[in-house]
Design a protein around this nucleic acid. Structure first.
Length: 576
DNA sequence: GAGGGAGGCGCG
DNA sequence: AAAGCGCGCCTCCCTC
Protein backbone atom coordinates (compact mmCIF):
# COMPACT_ATOMS: atom_id res chain seq x y z
CA UNK A 1 0.00 0.00 0.00
CA UNK A 2 1.11 3.52 -0.81
CA UNK A 3 -0.06 6.90 0.43
CA UNK A 4 0.74 10.15 -1.35
CA UNK A 5 1.50 13.10 0.89
CA UNK A 6 1.48 16.80 0.18
CA UNK A 7 2.78 18.95 3.00
CA UNK A 8 0.84 22.12 3.60
CA UNK A 9 2.30 25.46 4.49
CA UNK A 10 1.75 24.92 8.23
CA UNK A 11 1.41 21.69 10.21
CA UNK A 12 -1.30 20.29 7.97
CA UNK A 13 -1.32 18.52 4.67
CA UNK A 14 -3.23 16.36 2.25
CA UNK A 15 -3.08 12.62 1.67
CA UNK A 16 -4.37 10.08 -0.80
CA UNK A 17 -4.09 6.29 -0.81
CA UNK A 18 -2.60 4.75 -3.95
CA UNK A 19 -2.21 1.36 -5.54
CA UNK A 20 1.28 0.05 -6.32
CA UNK A 21 1.09 1.35 -9.88
CA UNK A 22 0.26 4.79 -8.56
CA UNK A 23 -3.40 4.96 -9.44
CA UNK A 24 -5.62 6.43 -6.69
CA UNK A 25 -7.10 3.85 -4.34
CA UNK A 26 -9.36 6.23 -2.46
CA UNK A 27 -10.29 9.86 -2.08
CA UNK A 28 -7.88 12.61 -1.12
CA UNK A 29 -8.32 14.08 2.32
CA UNK A 30 -6.86 16.94 4.32
CA UNK A 31 -5.59 16.88 7.89
CA UNK A 32 -4.56 19.65 10.27
CA UNK A 33 -1.85 17.55 11.96
CA UNK A 34 0.14 15.86 9.22
CA UNK A 35 2.73 14.31 11.55
CA UNK A 36 0.00 12.84 13.74
CA UNK A 37 -1.83 11.40 10.77
CA UNK A 38 1.33 9.85 9.34
CA UNK A 39 2.16 8.34 12.73
CA UNK A 40 -1.29 6.79 12.96
CA UNK A 41 -1.29 5.38 9.43
CA UNK A 42 2.25 4.12 9.88
CA UNK A 43 1.15 2.13 12.94
CA UNK A 44 -1.96 0.86 11.20
CA UNK A 45 -0.73 0.06 7.67
CA UNK A 46 3.01 0.83 7.38
CA UNK A 47 2.48 2.07 3.81
CA UNK A 48 5.16 3.31 1.45
CA UNK A 49 4.91 7.07 1.78
CA UNK A 50 5.06 8.93 -1.51
CA UNK A 51 6.31 12.46 -1.10
CA UNK A 52 8.28 15.14 -2.86
CA UNK A 53 11.42 15.01 -0.78
CA UNK A 54 12.44 13.28 2.42
CA UNK A 55 15.12 15.91 2.94
CA UNK A 56 12.43 18.54 3.23
CA UNK A 57 9.66 16.59 4.89
CA UNK A 58 11.13 13.93 7.09
CA UNK A 59 13.16 16.10 9.53
CA UNK A 60 9.91 17.69 10.61
CA UNK A 61 8.41 14.27 11.29
CA UNK A 62 11.50 13.19 13.20
CA UNK A 63 11.26 16.24 15.42
CA UNK A 64 7.68 15.23 16.13
CA UNK A 65 8.93 11.78 17.11
CA UNK A 66 7.56 10.05 14.02
CA UNK A 67 9.58 7.50 12.03
CA UNK A 68 8.44 5.68 8.93
CA UNK A 69 9.60 2.41 7.43
CA UNK A 70 9.39 3.11 3.70
CA UNK A 71 9.00 5.96 1.26
CA UNK A 72 9.24 6.93 -2.38
CA UNK A 73 11.23 10.14 -2.76
CA UNK A 74 9.95 11.76 -5.94
CA UNK A 75 12.80 14.22 -6.39
CA UNK A 76 15.50 11.59 -5.99
CA UNK A 77 13.76 9.12 -8.29
CA UNK A 78 13.15 11.87 -10.84
CA UNK A 79 16.86 12.63 -10.73
CA UNK A 80 17.71 8.97 -11.36
CA UNK A 81 15.26 8.76 -14.26
CA UNK A 82 16.54 11.97 -15.83
CA UNK A 83 20.09 10.69 -15.57
CA UNK A 84 19.14 7.40 -17.17
CA UNK A 85 17.59 9.29 -20.07
CA UNK A 86 20.80 11.28 -20.55
CA UNK A 87 19.15 14.43 -19.20
CA UNK A 88 21.41 14.78 -16.22
CA UNK A 89 20.98 17.98 -14.24
CA UNK A 90 17.52 19.00 -15.44
CA UNK A 91 15.19 20.26 -12.69
CA UNK A 92 13.93 17.44 -10.49
CA UNK A 93 11.21 19.03 -8.38
CA UNK A 94 7.68 17.66 -8.50
CA UNK A 95 6.60 20.88 -10.17
CA UNK A 96 9.27 20.49 -12.83
CA UNK A 97 8.45 16.82 -13.40
CA UNK A 98 4.76 17.65 -13.68
CA UNK A 99 5.49 20.44 -16.15
CA UNK A 100 7.53 18.04 -18.29
CA UNK A 101 4.61 15.59 -18.31
CA UNK A 102 2.35 18.32 -19.64
CA UNK A 103 4.74 19.96 -22.05
CA UNK A 104 4.72 23.16 -20.03
CA UNK A 105 7.65 25.43 -19.21
CA UNK A 106 9.83 23.70 -16.61
CA UNK A 107 10.60 25.78 -13.52
CA UNK A 108 14.20 25.67 -12.29
CA UNK A 109 14.93 23.99 -8.98
CA UNK A 110 15.26 26.33 -6.02
CA UNK A 111 18.90 26.84 -5.09
CA UNK A 112 20.07 24.25 -2.54
CA UNK A 113 21.67 24.92 0.84
CA UNK A 114 19.01 27.29 2.19
CA UNK A 115 18.00 24.57 4.57
CA UNK A 116 21.49 23.71 5.72
CA UNK A 117 21.91 23.40 9.48
CA UNK A 118 24.57 26.09 9.38
CA UNK A 119 21.81 28.50 8.51
CA UNK A 120 19.31 27.14 11.00
CA UNK A 121 20.23 29.57 13.75
CA UNK A 122 19.71 32.44 11.38
CA UNK A 123 16.44 31.04 10.10
CA UNK A 124 15.06 30.58 13.59
CA UNK A 125 15.31 34.31 14.10
CA UNK A 126 12.42 34.43 11.73
CA UNK A 127 10.50 31.74 13.58
CA UNK A 128 11.47 29.16 11.03
CA UNK A 129 13.18 25.96 12.04
CA UNK A 130 15.04 25.19 8.91
CA UNK A 131 13.17 26.71 6.07
CA UNK A 132 10.84 23.87 5.27
CA UNK A 133 7.78 25.61 6.64
CA UNK A 134 8.45 28.61 4.48
CA UNK A 135 8.51 26.44 1.37
CA UNK A 136 5.39 26.63 -0.77
CA UNK A 137 3.07 23.76 -0.07
CA UNK A 138 3.09 20.70 -2.31
CA UNK A 139 0.31 20.03 -4.78
CA UNK A 140 -1.19 16.62 -4.08
CA UNK A 141 -2.48 16.24 -7.62
CA UNK A 142 1.01 16.76 -8.97
CA UNK A 143 2.49 14.34 -6.43
CA UNK A 144 0.05 11.64 -7.51
CA UNK A 145 0.55 12.22 -11.21
CA UNK A 146 4.33 12.41 -11.12
CA UNK A 147 4.50 9.29 -8.99
CA UNK A 148 2.35 7.32 -11.42
CA UNK A 149 4.57 8.43 -14.30
CA UNK A 150 7.67 7.41 -12.39
CA UNK A 151 6.21 4.00 -11.59
CA UNK A 152 5.58 3.42 -15.30
CA UNK A 153 9.11 4.51 -16.19
CA UNK A 154 10.73 2.50 -13.41
CA UNK A 155 8.86 -0.66 -14.39
CA UNK A 156 10.43 -0.54 -17.83
CA UNK A 157 14.03 -0.35 -16.65
CA UNK A 158 15.99 -3.31 -15.37
CA UNK A 159 17.07 -2.91 -11.77
CA UNK A 160 15.46 0.47 -11.40
CA UNK A 161 12.74 -0.58 -8.99
CA UNK A 162 15.43 -1.66 -6.58
CA UNK A 163 17.45 1.47 -7.25
CA UNK A 164 14.45 3.73 -6.59
CA UNK A 165 13.61 1.88 -3.39
CA UNK A 166 17.21 1.93 -2.20
CA UNK A 167 17.69 5.62 -2.97
CA UNK A 168 14.45 6.41 -1.13
CA UNK A 169 15.45 4.30 1.86
CA UNK A 170 18.73 6.19 1.80
CA UNK A 171 16.85 9.46 2.04
CA UNK A 172 15.25 8.26 5.27
CA UNK A 173 18.59 7.11 6.65
CA UNK A 174 20.19 10.44 5.77
CA UNK A 175 17.53 12.44 7.59
CA UNK A 176 17.76 10.14 10.61
CA UNK A 177 21.56 10.40 10.69
CA UNK A 178 21.20 14.17 10.73
CA UNK A 179 18.55 13.99 13.43
CA UNK A 180 20.22 11.48 15.74
CA UNK A 181 23.77 12.72 15.25
CA UNK A 182 27.14 11.11 15.83
CA UNK A 183 28.05 10.93 19.54
CA UNK A 184 30.83 13.48 19.91
CA UNK A 185 32.81 14.39 22.99
CA UNK A 186 33.60 18.08 22.91
CA UNK A 187 35.88 17.55 25.91
CA UNK A 188 37.93 14.90 24.09
CA UNK A 189 38.09 17.05 21.00
CA UNK A 190 39.24 20.06 22.99
CA UNK A 191 41.82 17.96 24.85
CA UNK A 192 43.24 16.68 21.59
CA UNK A 193 43.49 20.16 20.11
CA UNK A 194 45.16 21.47 23.24
CA UNK A 195 47.61 18.56 23.23
CA UNK A 196 48.62 19.14 19.62
CA UNK A 197 48.27 22.90 19.21
CA UNK A 198 48.51 24.41 22.69
CA UNK A 199 45.70 26.11 24.55
CA UNK A 200 42.89 27.68 22.60
CA UNK A 201 44.04 31.14 21.52
CA UNK A 202 41.85 34.18 21.81
CA UNK A 203 40.95 36.26 18.81
CA UNK A 204 42.21 35.09 15.46
CA UNK A 205 45.69 34.33 16.72
CA UNK A 206 47.65 31.27 15.78
CA UNK A 207 47.74 28.62 18.49
CA UNK A 208 51.06 28.51 20.31
CA UNK A 209 52.43 25.42 18.61
CA UNK A 210 51.66 26.76 15.14
CA UNK A 211 53.25 30.11 15.93
CA UNK A 212 56.42 28.41 17.17
CA UNK A 213 56.65 26.36 14.01
CA UNK A 214 56.01 29.41 11.82
CA UNK A 215 58.82 31.30 13.57
CA UNK A 216 61.25 28.40 13.23
CA UNK A 217 60.34 27.97 9.56
CA UNK A 218 61.25 31.61 8.93
CA UNK A 219 64.49 31.21 10.87
CA UNK A 220 65.40 28.11 8.86
CA UNK A 221 65.51 30.25 5.73
CA UNK A 222 67.73 32.89 7.30
CA UNK A 223 67.93 35.43 10.10
CA UNK A 224 64.99 37.82 10.23
CA UNK A 225 63.39 36.01 7.30
CA UNK A 226 59.64 35.98 7.26
CA UNK A 227 57.71 33.27 5.47
CA UNK A 228 54.00 32.72 5.88
CA UNK A 229 53.75 28.92 5.90
CA UNK A 230 50.11 29.20 4.84
CA UNK A 231 51.20 30.76 1.57
CA UNK A 232 52.45 28.26 -1.02
CA UNK A 233 53.75 31.16 -3.12
CA UNK A 234 55.97 32.44 -0.31
CA UNK A 235 57.27 28.95 0.42
CA UNK A 236 58.16 28.37 -3.22
CA UNK A 237 60.02 31.67 -3.27
CA UNK A 238 61.92 30.90 -0.10
CA UNK A 239 63.09 27.52 -1.44
CA UNK A 240 64.07 29.06 -4.75
CA UNK A 241 66.08 31.73 -2.91
CA UNK A 242 67.81 28.94 -0.99
CA UNK A 243 68.85 27.36 -4.29
CA UNK A 244 66.29 24.54 -4.04
CA UNK A 245 63.60 25.24 -6.63
CA UNK A 246 60.55 22.98 -6.19
CA UNK A 247 57.51 22.58 -8.44
CA UNK A 248 54.99 22.74 -5.61
CA UNK A 249 54.72 22.67 -1.85
CA UNK A 250 52.81 19.42 -1.67
CA UNK A 251 53.91 17.20 1.17
CA UNK A 252 55.31 14.47 -1.06
CA UNK A 253 57.41 17.01 -2.97
CA UNK A 254 58.76 18.59 0.19
CA UNK A 255 59.68 15.19 1.60
CA UNK A 256 62.31 14.78 -1.09
CA UNK A 257 63.99 18.10 -0.34
CA UNK A 258 66.93 18.26 2.03
CA UNK A 259 66.47 21.48 3.99
CA UNK A 260 65.97 22.19 7.71
CA UNK A 261 62.64 23.91 7.04
CA UNK A 262 61.11 20.76 5.53
CA UNK A 263 60.24 18.78 8.68
CA UNK A 264 58.95 21.97 10.29
CA UNK A 265 56.76 22.74 7.29
CA UNK A 266 55.37 19.22 7.15
CA UNK A 267 54.43 19.38 10.81
CA UNK A 268 52.98 22.86 10.37
CA UNK A 269 50.82 21.82 7.43
CA UNK A 270 49.37 18.88 9.27
CA UNK A 271 48.55 20.83 12.41
CA UNK A 272 47.35 23.92 10.55
CA UNK A 273 44.92 21.83 8.62
CA UNK A 274 43.54 20.26 11.76
CA UNK A 275 43.16 23.70 13.29
CA UNK A 276 41.52 25.25 10.24
CA UNK A 277 39.22 22.42 9.23
CA UNK A 278 38.38 20.71 12.52
CA UNK A 279 39.59 23.07 15.23
CA UNK A 280 37.73 24.94 17.94
CA UNK A 281 35.67 26.92 15.44
CA UNK A 282 34.38 23.67 13.93
CA UNK A 283 33.58 22.34 17.38
CA UNK A 284 31.61 25.48 18.24
CA UNK A 285 29.69 25.36 14.98
CA UNK A 286 28.92 21.69 14.60
CA UNK A 287 28.72 19.98 17.98
CA UNK A 288 25.68 20.51 20.21
CA UNK A 289 24.55 18.45 23.15
CA UNK A 290 27.20 15.78 22.58
CA UNK A 291 26.23 15.17 18.96
CA UNK A 292 27.68 16.09 15.58
CA UNK A 293 24.79 16.48 13.16
CA UNK A 294 25.93 16.72 9.57
CA UNK A 295 23.53 17.19 6.70
CA UNK A 296 23.96 14.29 4.31
CA UNK A 297 23.07 14.78 0.66
CA UNK A 298 21.79 11.56 -0.90
CA UNK A 299 23.00 11.16 -4.45
CA UNK A 300 25.19 14.23 -3.96
CA UNK A 301 27.95 12.58 -5.97
CA UNK A 302 27.38 11.50 -9.57
CA UNK A 303 28.35 7.94 -8.73
CA UNK A 304 25.58 7.71 -6.14
CA UNK A 305 27.84 8.24 -3.21
CA UNK A 306 26.57 10.71 -0.68
CA UNK A 307 27.93 14.16 -0.08
CA UNK A 308 27.51 16.35 2.98
CA UNK A 309 26.62 19.95 3.32
CA UNK A 310 28.92 21.69 5.74
CA UNK A 311 30.79 20.12 8.61
CA UNK A 312 32.92 17.91 6.41
CA UNK A 313 31.45 14.73 7.90
CA UNK A 314 33.04 12.58 5.20
CA UNK A 315 36.52 13.98 5.83
CA UNK A 316 36.87 13.65 9.58
CA UNK A 317 40.62 13.20 10.16
CA UNK A 318 41.60 9.90 11.69
CA UNK A 319 43.19 11.57 14.73
CA UNK A 320 39.82 13.02 15.65
CA UNK A 321 38.17 9.64 15.90
CA UNK A 322 38.97 9.56 19.59
CA UNK A 323 36.35 12.30 20.04
CA UNK A 324 33.63 9.93 18.82
CA UNK A 325 32.60 8.29 22.08
CA UNK A 326 29.59 6.10 22.87
CA UNK A 327 27.19 7.14 25.62
CA UNK A 328 27.69 5.39 29.00
CA UNK A 329 26.36 1.83 28.80
CA UNK A 330 26.31 2.05 25.00
CA UNK A 331 28.82 1.02 22.36
CA UNK A 332 29.77 1.80 18.80
CA UNK A 333 29.58 -0.99 16.26
CA UNK A 334 31.99 0.11 13.55
CA UNK A 335 31.65 -1.86 10.33
CA UNK A 336 33.67 -1.51 7.17
CA UNK A 337 33.25 -3.35 3.87
CA UNK A 338 36.68 -4.76 3.14
CA UNK A 339 38.09 -4.12 -0.35
CA UNK A 340 34.63 -3.24 -1.61
CA UNK A 341 35.44 -1.88 -5.06
CA UNK A 342 37.59 -4.73 -6.38
CA UNK A 343 35.00 -7.18 -5.07
CA UNK A 344 32.32 -5.26 -6.90
CA UNK A 345 34.38 -5.52 -10.06
CA UNK A 346 34.77 -9.24 -9.52
CA UNK A 347 31.02 -9.69 -9.16
CA UNK A 348 30.19 -7.36 -12.05
CA UNK A 349 32.58 -8.90 -14.51
CA UNK A 350 31.65 -12.49 -13.74
CA UNK A 351 35.31 -13.38 -14.20
CA UNK A 352 35.47 -16.92 -12.87
CA UNK A 353 39.06 -16.92 -11.68
CA UNK A 354 38.79 -13.46 -10.20
CA UNK A 355 35.48 -14.19 -8.51
CA UNK A 356 36.89 -17.36 -6.96
CA UNK A 357 39.77 -15.32 -5.53
CA UNK A 358 37.20 -12.92 -4.08
CA UNK A 359 35.17 -15.70 -2.53
CA UNK A 360 36.67 -15.13 0.92
CA UNK A 361 39.45 -13.58 2.93
CA UNK A 362 41.98 -11.07 1.66
CA UNK A 363 41.29 -10.50 -2.02
CA UNK A 364 44.71 -9.09 -2.84
CA UNK A 365 46.43 -11.97 -1.08
CA UNK A 366 44.32 -14.43 -3.03
CA UNK A 367 45.33 -12.76 -6.29
CA UNK A 368 48.98 -12.44 -5.42
CA UNK A 369 50.02 -15.83 -6.81
CA UNK A 370 49.37 -14.49 -10.27
CA UNK A 371 51.84 -11.67 -9.64
CA UNK A 372 54.53 -13.51 -7.77
CA UNK A 373 56.59 -14.32 -10.83
CA UNK A 374 56.48 -10.81 -12.25
CA UNK A 375 60.05 -9.51 -12.22
CA UNK A 376 59.51 -6.01 -13.45
CA UNK A 377 58.42 -4.42 -10.20
CA UNK A 378 61.26 -5.26 -7.92
CA UNK A 379 60.59 -4.09 -4.39
CA UNK A 380 56.88 -4.74 -4.16
CA UNK A 381 55.40 -7.78 -2.50
CA UNK A 382 53.18 -9.94 -4.64
CA UNK A 383 50.21 -8.67 -2.66
CA UNK A 384 51.19 -5.05 -3.25
CA UNK A 385 51.53 -5.80 -6.97
CA UNK A 386 48.07 -7.32 -7.08
CA UNK A 387 46.64 -4.29 -5.32
CA UNK A 388 48.44 -1.86 -7.62
CA UNK A 389 47.24 -3.72 -10.70
CA UNK A 390 43.66 -3.63 -9.47
CA UNK A 391 43.75 0.03 -8.56
CA UNK A 392 45.29 0.88 -11.91
CA UNK A 393 42.58 -1.05 -13.72
CA UNK A 394 39.80 0.64 -11.77
CA UNK A 395 41.23 4.15 -11.79
CA UNK A 396 42.81 4.18 -15.22
CA UNK A 397 46.33 4.47 -13.94
CA UNK A 398 49.07 2.34 -15.31
CA UNK A 399 52.09 4.45 -15.93
CA UNK A 400 55.54 3.15 -15.23
CA UNK A 401 55.70 -0.19 -13.56
CA UNK A 402 51.96 -0.60 -13.33
CA UNK A 403 51.88 -1.21 -17.11
CA UNK A 404 53.54 -4.55 -16.54
CA UNK A 405 51.15 -5.47 -13.76
CA UNK A 406 48.14 -4.56 -15.87
CA UNK A 407 49.47 -7.00 -18.44
CA UNK A 408 49.45 -9.74 -15.83
CA UNK A 409 45.91 -8.81 -14.83
CA UNK A 410 44.83 -8.89 -18.45
CA UNK A 411 46.23 -12.33 -19.12
CA UNK A 412 45.16 -13.97 -15.87
CA UNK A 413 41.79 -12.28 -15.37
CA UNK A 414 40.69 -11.30 -18.87
CA UNK A 415 37.00 -10.79 -18.12
CA UNK A 416 37.62 -8.46 -15.20
CA UNK A 417 40.16 -6.53 -17.24
CA UNK A 418 37.82 -6.32 -20.20
CA UNK A 419 34.92 -5.08 -18.07
CA UNK A 420 36.63 -1.84 -17.11
CA UNK A 421 38.30 -1.51 -20.51
CA UNK A 422 34.90 -1.63 -22.17
CA UNK A 423 33.64 1.09 -19.83
CA UNK A 424 36.65 3.22 -20.70
CA UNK A 425 36.10 2.74 -24.44
CA UNK A 426 32.43 3.67 -24.07
CA UNK A 427 33.44 6.84 -22.29
CA UNK A 428 35.95 7.77 -24.95
CA UNK A 429 33.22 7.40 -27.55
CA UNK A 430 31.02 9.78 -25.63
CA UNK A 431 28.61 7.09 -24.53
CA UNK A 432 26.95 6.79 -21.13
CA UNK A 433 27.73 4.02 -18.69
CA UNK A 434 25.59 2.79 -15.80
CA UNK A 435 25.86 1.09 -12.46
CA UNK A 436 24.43 -2.38 -12.08
CA UNK A 437 21.11 -0.97 -10.89
CA UNK A 438 21.01 1.67 -13.61
CA UNK A 439 22.44 4.83 -12.09
CA UNK A 440 23.86 6.64 -15.08
CA UNK A 441 26.90 8.82 -15.49
CA UNK A 442 26.48 12.40 -16.71
CA UNK A 443 27.04 12.95 -20.42
CA UNK A 444 30.23 14.66 -21.53
CA UNK A 445 30.06 18.43 -21.68
CA UNK A 446 29.53 20.38 -24.88
CA UNK A 447 33.13 21.54 -24.58
CA UNK A 448 34.32 17.93 -24.48
CA UNK A 449 32.34 17.03 -27.60
CA UNK A 450 33.64 20.05 -29.42
CA UNK A 451 37.22 19.36 -28.47
CA UNK A 452 37.14 15.66 -29.26
CA UNK A 453 35.20 16.01 -32.50
CA UNK A 454 37.35 18.84 -33.76
CA UNK A 455 40.57 16.89 -33.49
CA UNK A 456 40.07 13.16 -33.42
CA UNK A 457 43.57 12.26 -34.44
CA UNK A 458 46.97 13.30 -33.23
CA UNK A 459 48.41 16.75 -33.47
CA UNK A 460 45.75 18.40 -31.39
CA UNK A 461 45.54 22.16 -31.27
CA UNK A 462 45.95 23.98 -28.00
CA UNK A 463 42.74 24.46 -26.10
CA UNK A 464 40.95 27.54 -27.38
CA UNK A 465 38.59 27.58 -24.42
CA UNK A 466 41.34 28.17 -21.89
CA UNK A 467 40.45 31.84 -21.98
CA UNK A 468 37.12 31.04 -20.38
CA UNK A 469 38.99 30.24 -17.25
CA UNK A 470 37.57 26.73 -17.07
CA UNK A 471 40.15 24.08 -16.26
CA UNK A 472 40.05 21.76 -19.25
CA UNK A 473 42.27 19.19 -20.84
CA UNK A 474 44.51 20.91 -23.34
CA UNK A 475 44.14 18.39 -26.12
CA UNK A 476 41.54 16.07 -27.54
CA UNK A 477 43.67 13.09 -26.59
CA UNK A 478 43.81 14.23 -22.99
CA UNK A 479 40.07 14.86 -22.93
CA UNK A 480 39.38 11.39 -24.30
CA UNK A 481 41.63 9.67 -21.82
CA UNK A 482 40.18 11.67 -18.97
CA UNK A 483 36.63 10.75 -19.92
CA UNK A 484 37.67 7.12 -20.26
CA UNK A 485 39.13 7.13 -16.75
CA UNK A 486 35.91 8.63 -15.46
CA UNK A 487 33.58 6.04 -17.03
CA UNK A 488 36.01 3.23 -16.21
CA UNK A 489 35.84 4.17 -12.57
CA UNK A 490 32.15 5.04 -12.65
CA UNK A 491 30.90 1.52 -13.30
CA UNK A 492 32.76 0.24 -10.26
CA UNK A 493 32.31 3.16 -7.87
CA UNK A 494 28.60 3.54 -8.72
CA UNK A 495 27.88 -0.17 -8.32
CA UNK A 496 29.73 -0.07 -5.00
CA UNK A 497 27.39 2.79 -4.07
CA UNK A 498 24.42 0.64 -5.16
CA UNK A 499 25.64 -2.07 -2.83
CA UNK A 500 26.21 0.34 0.06
CA UNK A 501 22.72 1.76 -0.38
CA UNK A 502 21.23 -1.72 -0.31
CA UNK A 503 23.26 -2.44 2.82
CA UNK A 504 21.95 0.70 4.52
CA UNK A 505 18.34 -0.06 3.69
CA UNK A 506 18.61 -3.59 4.96
CA UNK A 507 20.49 -2.59 8.10
CA UNK A 508 18.01 0.16 8.89
CA UNK A 509 15.15 -2.32 8.77
CA UNK A 510 16.98 -4.78 11.02
CA UNK A 511 17.94 -2.09 13.54
CA UNK A 512 14.35 -0.89 13.72
CA UNK A 513 13.38 -4.41 14.72
CA UNK A 514 16.01 -4.35 17.48
CA UNK A 515 14.66 -1.09 18.89
CA UNK A 516 17.15 1.32 20.47
CA UNK A 517 20.20 0.94 18.16
CA UNK A 518 20.70 3.84 15.78
CA UNK A 519 22.75 4.27 12.63
CA UNK A 520 24.90 7.28 13.40
CA UNK A 521 27.51 7.42 10.64
CA UNK A 522 27.89 6.42 7.01
CA UNK A 523 30.93 6.97 4.84
CA UNK A 524 30.85 5.25 1.46
CA UNK A 525 31.67 1.74 2.65
CA UNK A 526 31.58 2.12 6.40
CA UNK A 527 28.78 2.43 8.97
CA UNK A 528 28.66 3.09 12.69
CA UNK A 529 25.77 1.94 14.85
CA UNK A 530 25.29 3.37 18.35
CA UNK A 531 23.71 0.70 20.49
CA UNK A 532 23.19 -0.37 24.10
CA UNK A 533 26.18 -2.54 24.97
CA UNK A 534 24.05 -5.63 25.54
CA UNK A 535 22.84 -5.44 21.93
CA UNK A 536 26.34 -5.37 20.41
CA UNK A 537 26.16 -8.98 19.25
CA UNK A 538 22.71 -8.54 17.78
CA UNK A 539 23.85 -5.44 15.88
CA UNK A 540 26.96 -7.21 14.64
CA UNK A 541 24.80 -10.01 13.35
CA UNK A 542 22.45 -7.49 11.73
CA UNK A 543 25.36 -5.89 9.90
CA UNK A 544 26.58 -9.22 8.55
CA UNK A 545 23.08 -10.22 7.48
CA UNK A 546 22.62 -6.87 5.75
CA UNK A 547 25.86 -7.21 3.79
CA UNK A 548 24.72 -10.64 2.71
CA UNK A 549 21.29 -9.34 1.73
CA UNK A 550 22.86 -6.51 -0.29
CA UNK A 551 25.05 -9.01 -2.12
CA UNK A 552 22.08 -11.21 -2.96
CA UNK A 553 19.90 -8.30 -4.08
CA UNK A 554 22.54 -7.02 -6.48
CA UNK A 555 24.42 -10.04 -7.65
CA UNK A 556 22.24 -13.07 -6.95
CA UNK A 557 24.33 -16.22 -6.86
CA UNK A 558 27.80 -14.72 -7.26
CA UNK A 559 30.60 -16.56 -5.45
CA UNK A 560 32.11 -13.18 -4.53
CA UNK A 561 32.01 -12.47 -0.80
CA UNK A 562 31.51 -9.04 0.73
CA UNK A 563 33.02 -9.46 4.19
CA UNK A 564 32.53 -6.78 6.82
CA UNK A 565 35.27 -5.89 9.26
CA UNK A 566 33.36 -5.18 12.46
CA UNK A 567 34.62 -3.79 15.75
CA UNK A 568 32.61 -3.16 18.92
CA UNK A 569 34.25 -0.25 20.73
CA UNK A 570 33.64 2.64 23.10
CA UNK A 571 35.35 5.07 20.80
CA UNK A 572 35.74 5.17 17.06
CA UNK A 573 39.53 5.48 17.33
CA UNK A 574 39.71 2.00 18.85
CA UNK A 575 38.30 0.32 15.73
CA UNK A 576 41.17 -1.19 13.68
C1' DG B 1 33.97 43.36 0.21
C1' DA B 2 32.26 39.60 -2.39
C1' DG B 3 33.37 35.96 -5.41
C1' DG B 4 36.06 32.56 -7.33
C1' DG B 5 40.25 30.05 -9.03
C1' DA B 6 44.43 27.80 -7.43
C1' DG B 7 46.89 25.14 -4.32
C1' DG B 8 46.59 21.95 -0.97
C1' DC B 9 44.91 18.04 1.83
C1' DG B 10 41.28 15.47 4.60
C1' DC B 11 38.19 11.20 3.59
C1' DG B 12 36.62 6.77 0.70
C1' DA C 1 57.84 6.92 -5.00
C1' DA C 2 53.68 8.21 -7.07
C1' DA C 3 49.53 7.68 -9.57
C1' DG C 4 44.87 6.68 -11.50
C1' DC C 5 38.84 7.75 -9.54
C1' DG C 6 35.16 10.49 -6.49
C1' DC C 7 34.34 14.42 -3.22
C1' DG C 8 34.36 19.17 0.63
C1' DC C 9 36.54 22.85 2.42
C1' DC C 10 40.40 25.50 4.11
C1' DT C 11 43.65 29.80 2.98
C1' DC C 12 45.74 32.74 -0.27
C1' DC C 13 45.33 35.98 -3.70
C1' DC C 14 43.54 38.14 -7.67
C1' DT C 15 39.50 40.36 -10.07
C1' DC C 16 35.49 42.93 -10.15
Amino acid sequence: MRIAVAAGAGDGGELRPLDEDGSPAGPAYAVADLAGEIAARERADAPRWVWASSARLYPRLLRAGVRVARCHDLELVENLLLGHAGRYGEPRSVRAAWARLHGLPVPPDPPPSQEAPAHAAQASLFGDDDGERAAPSDDLGQVVEVHAAQQRAVAGLDGFALLAAAESAGSLVAAELGHDGLPWSAAEHDALLTELLGPRPSGGLRPRRLQELADRIGAAFGPRTHVNPDSPAQILKAFAAAGLPIPSTRAHVLKRVDHPAVPLLLEYKELARLHAAHGWAWLDTWVRGGRFRPEYVVGGVVSGRWATNGGGALQIPRVLRRAVVADPGWCLVVADAAQLEPRVLAALAGDRAFADAAAHGDLYEALSDAFRSDEATGGLSARAKAKLALLSAMYGGGTGEAVQLLGVLKSRFPDAFEYVEAAARAGERGRLVRSLLGRTCPPPSAGWRELTLAADDEGDPPDPSAAEGVRRPATAAQALRSRGRFTRNFVVQATAADWALALLGSLRRRLTALGPPRLVFFQHDEVIVHAPAELADAVTEAVRASAEEARRLLFGATPVAFPMEIAVVDRYADAK
